[in-house]
Design a binder for these strands. Structure first.
Lengths: 231, 231
DNA sequence: ACACTGGTATCTACACCGTAGGTCTACGAA
DNA sequence: TTCGTAGACCTACGGTGTAGATACCAGTGT
């Protein structure tokens, strides 16, 4: 028992040991965990452990876990650049689409959040970062001469296409990448042969999916279709 | 202490009190819960309670909760009719699309499962009910003269469109349905006015979204686009 | 110098979750 | 009768999100 009265200001480890928790740091760390292990492995406790803080401190920067997930989706979506001053609106939409695809492929585990979270929140209550791309596309299109409703229509068509495409592309994950035979690589040999003959016969076609080309073709069709008669 | 030796065959309540649990009953009940309260409110314990059984009995019919969710998605998707003998393939695709939309609107809370679960499972390991519509569309299209890869391509385009559209349409939920003013009804008055001027100005356009018409237009564009040059 | 105050970090606790493992019961076959 | 087996039930474990109490600490008024 040495100097029982001495109570130095710092004792057993600075309470905010690494750094002073901020919303950005928290969301960045959450994104990292999700990228590595998927959404369902992200828990408040694990996130706090990764940040070297008490779990409850997280609630200072997000009212609950759902809001935290919204925040993660927001940080990813905020990396989507939209140049609303581009005079060639169609080219800019193409560029946005390509960037969106790149983002989705960079964070495949976040895609369920991107497509699903908006279903849970009425539009006006969504995190502002989520609405920014929408507003940006709207200004791009109205500057190009479209009316408001038409711009909205085109925005919806574009992101419908994007969501659909990204979901398609991310499904093309491979069962056993080391296998050389497409049928085995995709695990299709497990299918009851009498029941799914066509599906089984398309092994090589399935294996040679080209996401980038597929998206370009979708954009071709969409942009051509938008040029034809008004809704 | 009366007759300590007496041990009647039925004691405190028939152990399977309501009925003899089956996979169908289990999935139907799970679907009901999800329809009412959403996915995150479905727990094994609550499902068991609703079925008047022990939670652990559920594991006799599904190896784990993820499989149960897959089963729910499967039961919904199995209600999607595809007539692969229809000689007019385009008309049949339209019909499938409309039925899919109707299904999604009937079970909006299941849609996250429909679009998300496939991301977690390689194609060949998915529940067979999930692959049935795929095989059916493929036979429809090959009977119509398309090659296998082309049929696959069209299938992907169709379901990309459908997923995108359904996600779009289900976002259009309204914040406060009693309000007459569109701006208030959508809660758009809460947006910082300087930041989202266009979005705010589109309140009435947002409020008058017509999902059925939008889908038809998407189908028009898609089917027209498929008629033009080959990939 | 002191007491007080208000915000922040931490701790404890609660109700619930998914599910591994063991036990009890009922029933068809030998 | 005995046995094997399949199904239902129970208990228990480690985890979850988060409400609420508590501990701390800077800043301010006196």
């Amino acid at each position: 028992m040495v100097a029982p009265t001495a109570r130095p200001t710092v004792e057993v480890g600075d309470p905010p040991p690494t750094k002073r928790l901020s919303r950005e740091r928290m969301l960045a760390c959450a994104l990292e965990i999700i990228d590595q292990d998927g959404i369902e492995k992200l828990s408040m406790r694990r996130l706090a452990r990764a940040l070297d803080h008490d779990p409850m401190s997280l609630y200072r920067h997000a009212p609950n876990k759902a809001a935290l997930l919204d925040g993660v989706a927001e940080t990813v979506l905020n990396q989507l650049e939209v140049d609303s001053t581009d005079p060639d609106w169609a080219a800019q939409l193409r560029a946005v689409a390509r960037r969106y695809r790149r983002l989705a492929l960079a964070h495949p585990n976040v895609v369920p959040l991107l497509v699903t979270r908006p279903l849970a929140t009425p539009l006006a209550l969504r995190p502002k970062g989520t609405l920014r791309p929408l507003e940006a596309v709207l200004t791009l299109l109205t500057r190009a001469g479209f009316t408001g409703p038409d711009a909205l229509h085109i925005y919806r068509a574009l992101f419908g296409l994007l969501h659909g495409h990204v979901l398609n592309e991310l499904q093309e994950l491979v069962d056993n990448p080391d296998e050389t035979d497409d049928l085995l690589r995709l695990g299709l040999h497990r299918l009851p042969i009498g029941e799914f003959p066509l599906l089984r016969s398309l092994a090589t076609a399935l294996a040679s999916y080209d996401g980038a080309a597929e998206l370009e073709r979708g954009l071709d069709i969409l942009l051509a279709g938008l040029a034809t008669p008004h809704p």
